[in-house]
Write a protein that binds this DNA or RNA. Structure first.
Length: 880
RNA sequence: GGGCGAAUAGCUCAGUUGGUAGAGCACCUGCUUUACACGCAGGGGGCCACAGGUUCGAGUCCUGUUUCGCCCACCA
């Protein structure tokens, strides 16, 4: 034994070394493989935010991408994986402002310029952190092509797009009601608002008529907004209120006079059927107000406090404080008719979780309808395919109901809006470069202070990273990209926006397939979160178990699109598997002494022919599953093949022929097949477990620089004869092992067995493989006969694949135990036979089922009848 | 209000076009078999949520119900 190969795989010793090997040799670039004729396969990374470090969701997302890119690279594609990071405008803002707060300062105190300096410093520090973590995971990105959403090229793309859309009228500016986050101090898009159901109250308020006695009662969940009411609306067909329309009400607490209007928006069934209208603080009321000339009156400011317009008693109060005081006042005035509990949804900022305030402000928007049209078409027509397919509907449903996209943000970190306002006249100039002066009057211009929604630049990522708007070599060669891999949580934020942007600006789809995966949850299925402190740091897993184990654990056995639970027990399984492979290769190393590559012939040995054939079967399955994007099934197939077939059967079968004292020709043939099989297995496993497989492959005789660039195993032929023979041997072996175990034959006891072959084929196969079976079942001898005049009485008996097996045990046998065991087996066979016969007696079955199914069932009946007969005879003989 | 997903062994999950219910972990019994105890061999364990329907045949297809989860939505 060679002492230098440790028994236990240590990933730490391997991973760093081989990553450096790949990186130093530039193997991640598609140029590492020669030939220009190769088809491109491109993935552009979903750029991680520079705000943080790699989390378990990134680990899953990037593992999937790396599996795909490594597999395609081995298949001979010009495989390019473009890496990069996202400036994450609002998220980074939050982080930096937190940091500034800790320092006792703020962005306002710092000013724009110095704030941006801090932001770039942040980017330099944290941008590289996550890149290094991706490397730890084994990602084979082409780092020479790394991009950043705020780098020169991406920024040029953003400007180009903005200016173009503006001149086409697809970007416009205007006063609309928008979602204002009082905490982040910026407007956010509809998508960035998360609705949460809140238990609250529905307050019934009485508004007296100004022009006569009586009152109308309105219901509201936000009483503080009544200070901004400029009307009350009822349904035009509501008979209760027919006479009220056109009259005037006196708004309590303010004494303002407001009209009653009729609008079909109002649901007569809800509340009292009369709605207070607050155009400045409710999106519906905003629209309703426009229809009826009810001017907005802003009573809540951008700081979440009541404005002067709310009146002296309330101005300056926080909106919630105001609610309390106002309710007291209304109750005192006797106009709070009743309060009833209600659950309703309240919008919250997706970044800071603050309740969003609908406010009117002047913002920039993208007109979505014209852009959505083609974005719907390419998906409907299958040019872009969602995997799994069910996400197609999710996408289409959103795109078909899309609203205009608010793209301006009152932030500093990001792409500044290229709009310049003349200080002298009203003219607005939108241009990529700052104009020297107003093109109209020559006056000085000031640039819009706002930046763009961070997703505006992400939307261009698949082409901006490849050089667009320049007509670059990369853009021509690698665009459109092949596969986009991302979670279902950003289908709208990102995927949808890339699709319409690409169609608009590049005239083509950005990617062919969209592979959607689920979220990684904790072992109980809960979302990982800071507050629950249930997060799993992928770096911890890598440090303790290795990146290969993490990768394998994350993909194995998972269904595409479904969430998965992270369980440490499964990590152990992954670790064990890595160790199993390590030791299989270690076994090969220990048995390859004297092996000379070359001069291989077609294998003659049954075990060799069998494993080569099985390898072809798993090769075909893994390839097919990868093509379907079912990575979990591909990994599972490899797991069971490697463990059960390769290790537990093939290696055990090969051992005698590989022994140092084995005959030379047989030994070198066995060595050749061992190398061939292991080589192919490592290739198939490489996309999943790149480090381990590279390390092991480098220890094998091979040609080529790296397993990374080795060709994916080509299709071969199955040897069904060998597979059939091995199936017989395996079944007989298992049955004999079972006999030993059930009858408590001590491991040290060298028992001999008799096999009665039902036909010449079985007799031949068992005779040829008697040596293998005795070895695998720890027998001293196996006598294969075609008939046996007298069955041994002192023996355990079984029937496997039609072969009668006897394990003579002389004095050792426990008669009662054997009788019970046989009886149980007989029962089972009888039960199954009864079912089969019932089916075959059913005219419906024999008449309608496909012939091959019926034929199979008939064969099964023969087998079971034979088995039952033999077992029954045995039982009779033993006197049971 | 609309849509989607899940329900299969104690746990986490597979189950391809309907044709004898599987894996890993856990559990039980053996085993210092010269690659691996992170291992080897053997074993037990399932009214496939419920009720109907289609079919010769349903975990799989259809309808309905229940429970859990998610997404969308302008429910004052």
């Amino acid at each position: 034994m060679t002492p230098e190969i440790p028994k236990v795989y240590d990933p730490q010793a391997v991973e760093e070394r081989w990553y450096r090997f790949w990186e130093e040799r530039g193997l991640f670039a598609p140029e590492a493989q020669d030939g220009n004729g190769r088809t491109a396969y491109t993935i552009v990374i979903p750029p991680p935010n520079i705000t943080g470090s790699l989390h378990i969701g990134h680990a899953l997302d990037n593992t999937i991408q790396d599996i795909l890119i490594r597999w395609r690279r081995m298949q001979g594609y010009a495989a390019l994986w473009v890496p990069g990071t996202d400036h994450a405008s609002i998220a980074t803002h939050t982080k930096i402002e937190e940091m500034l707060a800790e320092e006792g300062t703020s962005r306002w105190e710092l000013g724009r310029e110095r704030f941006l300096e801090r932001a770039w410093a942040w980017k330099d520090k944290y941008g590289s952190t996550i890149i290094n973590q991706l490397k730890r995971l084994g990602c084979s990105c082409d780092w020479s092509r790394e991009r950043f959403t705020l780098d020169e090229g991406c920024s040029a793309a953003v400007l180009d797009v903005f200016v173009r859309l503006y001149h086409e009228g697809l970007i416009y500016r205007g006063h609309y009601i928008t979602n204002w986050c009082p905490e982040c101090q910026t407007v956010i898009s509809d998508l960035e608002v998360e609705h949460q159901d809140i238990d609250s109250n529905l307050y019934y308020l009485q508004y007296p008529f100004a022009d006569g006695p009586g009152h109308m009662t309105v219901a509201t969940t936000r009483p503080e907004t009544m200070l901004g009411d400029t009307g009350v609306a009822v349904h035009p067909d509501d008979r209760r209120y027919k006479a009220c329309v056109g009259r005037t009400l006196l708004l309590p607490a303010t004494g303002r006079r407001i009209p009653v209007v009729a609008d079909t928006y109002v649901d007569p069934e809800f509340g009292t059927g009369a709605v207070k209208v607050t155009p400045a603080h409710d999106p519906n009321d905003f629209e309703l107000g426009r229809r009826h000339d009810l001017a907005p009156l802003q009573v809540i400011g951008k700081d979440g406090r009541m404005t002067e317009a709310a009146g002296p008693r309330y101005a300056g109060l926080d909106r919630l404080e105001c609610r309390v005081r106002l309710l007291e006042d209304l109750r005192a005035a006797g106009v709070l008719a009743k309060t009833e509990p209600i659950s309703h949804s309240v919008g919250h900022c997706y970044r800071c979780d603050t309740a969003v305030e609908p406010l009117i402000s002047e913002q920039w928007f993208v007109k979505m309808r014209p852009l959505a049209e083609s974005a719907i078409r390419v998906v409907k027509e299958g040019e872009i395919r969602f995997v799994p397919d069910r996400f197609t509907k999710v996408y289409l449903n959103w795109m078909e109901n899309v609203h205009d996209w608010c793209i301006s943000r009152q932030l500093w970190w990001g792409h500044r809006i290229p709009a310049y306002y003349c200080q002298e006249c009203d003219r607005v100039t939108v241009a990529a470069a700052r104009p020297d002066g107003c093109p109209g009057c020559g006056g000085a211009v000031a640039q819009d202070p706002d930046v763009l929604d961070t997703w505006f630049s992400s939307a261009l990522w698949p082409f901006s990273t490849l050089g667009w708007p320049g007509d670059t070599a990369d853009y021509r060669r690698y665009y459109p990209t092949s596969t986009l891999v991302t979670g279902y949580d950003i289908i709208f934020f990102w995927v949808a926006r890339m699709i319409f942007s690409a169609l608009k600006h590049t005239g083509t789809i950005p990617f062919r397939d969209v592979l959607i995966h689920g979220m990684v949850r904790d072992s109980q299925g809960r979302k990982m979160s800071k507050s629950l402190n249930n997060g799993v740091d992928p770096l911890d897993v890598i440090r303790e178990y290795g990146a290969d184990t993490l990768r394998f654990t994350l993909v194995t056995g998972n269904t595409p699109g479904n969430d998965l639970r992270f369980q440490w027990e499964r990590v152990q399984t992954g670790r064990n598997f890595a160790n199993k492979l390590w030791n299989a290769a270690r076994f090969a190393q220990l048995n390859l002494a004297g092996y000379e590559p070359g001069g291989e012939r077609a294998p003659a040995d049954l075990a060799d022919r069998w494993i080569i054939s099985r390898l072809e079967a798993v090769r075909a399955e893994v390839t097919a599953k990868l093509e379907q994007y079912d990575l979990g099934a591909a990994a599972s197939a490899l797991y069971s093949f490697a463990w059960d077939e390769f290790c537990d059967w093939y290696i055990e079968l090969a051992k005698p022929r590989l022994a140092a004292d084995a005959p030379a020709p047989a030994r070198s043939e066995a060595q050749a097949v061992l190398v061939q099989a292991l080589d192919a297995l490592l290739k198939l496993l490489h996309p999943f477990m790149p480090f381990l497989t590279e390390a092991l492959w480098q220890g094998l005789p091979h040609t080529g620089e790296s397993l990374m660039l080795a060709p994916w195993p080509p299709a071969g032929n199955r040897d069904l004869a060998a597979e059939g023979d091995m199936a017989l041997i395996m079944e007989v072996t298992r049955s004999l092992r079972n006999l030993r175990a059930e009858l408590n034959v001590p491991a040290g006891k060298q028992a001999s067995a008799i096999a009665v072959a039902p036909g010449p084929r079985e007799a031949r196969v068992l005779r040829e493989s008697a040596g293998r079976i005795t070895r695998l079942a720890a027998l001293s001898q196996l006598d294969v006969v075609e008939s046996l005049p007298v069955r041994p009485a002192q023996a355990g008996a079984a029937v496997a694949a039609g072969v009668e097996l006897f394990l003579p045990l002389r004095d050792l046998i426990d008669f009662d135990k054997e009788l019970a065991r046989l009886a149980k087996e007989l029962d089972q066979a009888s039960l199954e036979l009864a079912k089969v016969e019932e089916r075959l007696q059913n005219a419906g079955f024999t008449g309608r089922a496909p012939v091959e199914v019926v034929e199979k069932e008939r064969q099964r009946r023969t087998e079971l009848a034979d088995k039952r007969e033999k077992l029954a005879a045995r039982l009779t003989m033993l006197g049971g």
